[in-house]
Every structure is written in structure tokens, then in C-alpha cells.
């Protein structure tokens, strides 16, 4: 097979300007960060759709991680293992759990944060959890024939149908995560997002509660083949409720979630719907338990 195909041309830019120039001159080239996603999906060779590959690993800005008092700045091609190491003790536990859920170190030593967010047709472990925080993404690229940099919140990276919303030849270059504290955090992976994207759900909650009430409740779910779901109405139906929530309140809010999910997309499969509602109910029961045990 190898002999039948021309070997892809690999470009390894060593600076951001070189990368952006290459991206402008070869808009069809595949951007290559860790490659775990591309290598495990296409056989026999990584990416038969494009004959040009731009490797991002040698651009220092793309792999740099900066830590300040207020936020963590992560180059999009930084490996997940490095994010876990540098962010040890400062990453919100729910985010650390989501990063670990991507795979064992044999994967996270290679997979990158940008890759996890930007696989064109799959939403993976980090999208939902990052959508709960104040996360800003730096995009650089050629907009209206000018090189531009813009910052967007994570949720604006995806269209409602889950597709990437990058414009022109834009590249995701940095992910900025502002620190926040939440006394109730939950991440749950149900099923296998990579192998069975139509069935898997990644559900996550970030909340703050006092002894008698929920102060702030945020929840999001990723349906790998559909997109990222977060609904303010569902969240506000829990926020400011008195704790512990009674059985009827839990049933009411989960009914609201079910309805909202059905309206969100017809591509959410029945099993994903059932799994999400169950995970949501479980999160409320755990929240009850935690508030009582404080």
C-alpha cells in the first residue's frame, strides 16, 4: 500500500509566523499535533485525505504552558500529561479527572489539548468540562486577507450541530483557563466516546453550595457525534434551590432536562438521552448527600 501512495509532505514550522504563512499557502493541509486521534482512526496510514501535513510540535508558542495567579495558559499542542503535571494542585479536580479520562499515559504523553478540542467530527472528553469554566481560546489566522488574532469563549468554537466554527485558515493556538472554586465537581464518562460515539456521554457538573442551598450549578454534556450541550434553563432550575432537593424537585428538573435534550438535537440517541438524564439525577442525589454530610 505504501508504494501506491506518495509519501505525505510534512512541514515542520519552527515559529508562529512560519506556521501561519504555511497555513495560508496550504489551507488543505492537515494540522498535526499529537496525532493520536488521526492515527487511530485511519488505516493503513494516518490521513489519506490530505497529502500535506503541518506538524505543530516545533512551534514553541504552541507547546508552552504559563501559569499565573488567575489563569493557566496552555499552548494548543501541549500534551495532556504536561498539562496535568504543570497544573498539579491548581487544576480544578473535575478538569484533572477529565484529562485523565482521555487515556493512560501512553496516550496522554502524546495527545494534546488542541487535538482533543479540534477533531472535526468528534467532540471528546474536554469540550463539556471546559465549557463550564471561563475558558478563552486564542485563534490566529488569515481573516479577510489579514493575519489576525482573536479570543473567543470555548462555546463559540462549535456550531449548534457540533461542527467546528473556525474561520478561514484559523488555528487554535492557546487555551486560557481562569481558576474558579467549586465545592461540588463531578465528571462522568459513560461508554466509549472514541469507539462508540453514538452511545457515549461525557457528563460534567461544577457547582457551589452552602449548607441549605445551591448557590451556583452548571452542568454540560458532550455527545461525541453530536456536540456539546449546556442549557441555562436547566441550570437555573437547580440554582438557588434549597437543599436537600426532594424527590419531586429532582423528577421535575430531570423532566425539564429530557425535554430540552429532545429539542436540542434529534441526533441524540435514546441511549444517550437515558444516560444523560440518569447522570443528571445522580449528580443531584450526590449533591444532596454532600450537603447533608457537611
Amino acid at each position: 500500500m505504501a508504494g501506491e501512495n506518495r509519501s505525505p509532505t510534512v512541514f515542520t514550522p519552527s515559529s508562529m509566523s512560519e506556521l501561519l504563512e504555511l497555513r495560508r499557502s496550504k489551507p488543505q493541509a492537515t494540522l498535526w499535533a499529537g496525532g493520536t486521534g488521526l492515527m487511530s482512526r485511519y488505516y493503513p496510514y494516518p490521513y489519506p485525505l490530505s497529502r500535506d501535513i503541518i506538524s505543530l510540535k516545533h512551534v514553541p508558542e504552541m507547546t508552552r504552558i504559563n501559569r499565573t495567579e488567575r489563569y493557566l495558559d496552555i499552548g494548543a499542542a501541549a500534551t495532556l500529561e504536561r498539562v496535568l503535571t504543570v497544573g498539579h494542585h491548581i487544576l480544578p479536580p473535575v478538569l484533572a479527572k477529565a484529562l485523565r479520562s482521555v487515556g493512560p499515559p501512553t496516550i496522554t504523553n502524546q495527545a494534546t489539548i488542541g487535538g482533543n478540542l479540534c477533531i472535526p467530527d468528534l467532540r471528546l472528553n474536554l469540550a463539556a468540562v471546559l465549557s463550564l469554566f471561563n475558558v478563552q481560546l486564542e485563534l490566529k489566522g488569515d481573516l479577510k486577507h489579514r493575519l489576525q488574532t482573536r479570543w473567543i469563549p470555548l462555546i463559540r468554537l462549535y456550531r449548534r450541530d457540533g461542527k467546528l466554527m473556525l474561520q478561514g485558515t484559523e488555528v487554535l493556538t492557546r487555551v486560557r483557563i481562569y481558576f474558579e472554586e467549586g465545592n461540588f465537581q463531578l465528571f462522568q464518562q459513560i461508554g466509549f466516546p472514541y469507539q462508540h460515539p453514538e452511545e457515549a456521554v461525557l457528563f460534567t457538573v461544577f457547582a457551589n453550595h452552602g449548607q441549605d442551598s445551591v448557590v451556583d450549578y452548571r452542568a454540560a454534556a458532550t455527545f461525541p457525534s453530536v456536540g456539546v450541550f449546556r442549557d441555562r434553563d436547566v441550570e437555573s432550575s437547580v440554582t438557588s434551590k434549597a437543599l436537600p432537593l426532594n424527590h419531586q424537585e429532582i423528577r421535575q428538573t430531570s423532566r425539564l432536562l429530557r425535554r430540552t435534550l429532545q429539542e436540542y438535537s434529534t441526533r441524540v440517541s435514546p441511549i444517550q438521552l437515558a444516560r444523560t438524564v440518569r447522570a443528571f439525577e445522580r449528580s443531584l442525589i450526590l449533591l444532596n448527600t454532600k450537603s447533608v454530610s457537611r
Binding site: V10, G35, T36, M39, S40, P46, I53, S55, K57, P105, T106, I107, N109, Q110
Partner: peptide, 13 residues
């Protein structure tokens, strides 16, 4: 010195 799965690493890398 990092353990990686060799099936996921392309030659150019």
C-alpha cells in the same frame, strides 16, 4: 524515555 504506543506514532514524528 516516555512509554508510547508505537502504532500511534508516525515515522515523521
Amino acid at each position: 524515555d516516555l512509554p508510547l504506543l508505537s502504532c500511534l506514532v508516525p515515522a515523521f514524528d
